[in-house]
């Protein structure tokens, strides 16, 4: 379905939590605005405590903002049962009724979403095998491992074939294999025309997967944009690999300061600040009898961009 406006639009959201009777409430979200468009994969990034879960709870009406507005599907439909039927949600560290089996739980979800019994059964089988839980269908959830819970969480979010899928930390608690599977599922959703909005504190997961990212820090948006724009915009440094390892006097003769690089076995690795410097160094190296094996511009990753935007002030847990 092609749509003009955004599927999800968040306008100037603010939220505080009370901390006690006398103390001042803590600000968890400040003036957050962002949009998600149809058929995008949007990563919602930020260190622990940035306010990602809080935002996602507000989107699912599990918490209510102090100020601001959330518009779903362009506001064509009032927020109610009809909107919820078009959204799939997986909470952070999902937890289910222990006394049910995986299959029973999905049946309950199907009933609540107004699906027919036959529909629920066929979708359940399909999704359980997609997330690798076919064998655990009739196992009590009490016996599930953390990773299995996460997988069941994904299955219940997708059961009613929602247009917009909101996932809170879908990759956390999974082994590398599981992460790869989840990435595959998210890509498949996009291929099927769905929209995915997911949070993560692991930048590399997001970098490889998302069309766009929104970075959050202490409840404020610090960056937003297409991944290739954010990453591609700036070059960190240019890495030169030279053979053989030239002695210090010949490096000096080539116009290269002694702290510009390091030896790595039989190779010399140099970091030039920009193209101009790299070219000057290459000319000098050739003059002094060196061979330039490679010259690669190293781009900023999301991690560096994040660090830069938050000013390196307080970024504990930005990576894992």
């Amino acid at each position: 379905m092609i749509r003009q406006g955004p599927i999800l639009s968040i306008e100037r959201l603010s939220k505080s939590y009370p901390t006690g009777f006398w103390r001042k409430p803590v600000r968890v979200l400040s003036d957050l605005s962002c949009e998600v468009h149809a058929n995008e994969i949007v990563g919602f990034l930020g260190p622990n405590g940035a306010g990602k879960t809080t935002t996602i709870k507000i989107l699912n009406r599990l918490a209510f903002p102090d100020a601001g507005k959330v518009t779903l599907f362009g506001g064509q439909v009032r927020d109610g049962a009809d909107v919820r039927r078009r959204i799939g949600f997986m909470p952070e560290q999902p937890y289910f009724y222990e006394y049910l089996t995986g299959g029973e739980f999905l049946r309950l979800c199907g009933q609540l979403c107004g699906m027919s019994r036959a529909d629920t059964e066929s979708r359940s089988s399909e999704l359980l095998s997609r997330v690798g839980l076919s064998g655990a269908r009739d196992t009590a959830i009490r016996k599930y491992s953390k990773g299995m819970m996460q997988r069941l969480g994904l299955a219940q979010a997708l059961l009613h074939d929602p247009e917009l899928v909101i996932l809170d930390e879908p990759m956390s608690g999974l082994d590398p294999m599981g992460r790869m599977e989840v990435r595959g599922i998210i890509r498949d959703l996009k291929a099927a025309g769905k929209t995915v909005f997911f949070s993560s504190h692991i930048l590399s997961d997001v970098e490889a997967l998302c069309d766009r990212v929104i970075m959050l820090h202490k409840g404020r948006k610090v960056a937003e944009g297409r991944v290739e724009e954010l990453i591609g915009a700036e070059t960190l440094y240019i890495e030169l690999v030279v053979s053989p390892v030239l002695p210090a006097d010949r490096l000096a003769a080539a116009g290269i300061p002694p702290d510009a690089g390091y030896a790595q076995g039989a190779l010399l690795v140099l970091r030039a600040a920009d193209n101009e410097q790299a070219n000057r160094w290459i000319a000098g190296l050739l003059r002094e009898g060196g061979t330039v094996l490679s010259c690669v511009p190293v781009k900023k990753g999301l991690e560096e961009i994040f660090m830069e935007r938050v000013g390196g002030s307080d970024s504990t847990g930005a990576t894992s």
Binding site: K57, N60, R61, L62, G80, A81, D82, R84, R85, I87, F89, P91, Q93, P94, Y95, F96, Y97, C109, L112, C113, G114, G153, Q156
Partner: peptide
């Protein structure tokens, strides 16, 4: 407490 309500209320359940 067990957060099972998150999933229930995110469905079309008032």
């Amino acid at each position: 407490e067990r957060k099972t309500i998150y999933i229930l209320l995110s469905k079309p359940v008032r």
